[in-house]
Amino acid sequence: MSGLRELYQEVIIDHSRQPRNFGVLLDANHHKEGFNPLCGDKLKLYVVEKNGVIEKMQFEGSGCAISVASASLMTEVMRGKTRAEVEAIFNDFHQLVTHGHNADVESRLGKLAVLAGVAEYPARVKCATLAWHTLKAAIADDPQAVSTE
């Protein structure tokens, strides 16, 4: 598969067209805005966390296919995860999109592995990680808005 076909494979196009868990979550106990000033990607992330476990997560906003698909996949994967698990997945995901294919990392990440192709396009890593940095700041209750710059 060429780099480009891998980057824009069906799962990614599908999640960018029909993002899962999209919309405001009124009972969120964490929420955060993320912004990529370079390309204008913007998202708001809403998290319901109970007893250290992510119960629900939703997002809204607009952006490129990579940033929307990454946010959509993240909200699916994070449901039911503890803070420690969130941290571990974050680190694996970051490793994947910056360094590319790695069998161990991909087996741990499951369907998130579709984003491995991003590593070939360094300029797009920020798109893929915007939602993730926003999540990290949201559960840390960091008062600053997240910006990739």
Binding site: S2, R17, G63, C64, I66, A123
Partner: peptide, 23 residues
Amino acid sequence: DGVHPHDIGTILDDHGIAVRAGH
């Protein structure tokens, strides 16, 4: 319609074409 400029920029780059995508 339906395609973000940043994605267009990446796909064009793959064709050897350098354009600017952004604000």
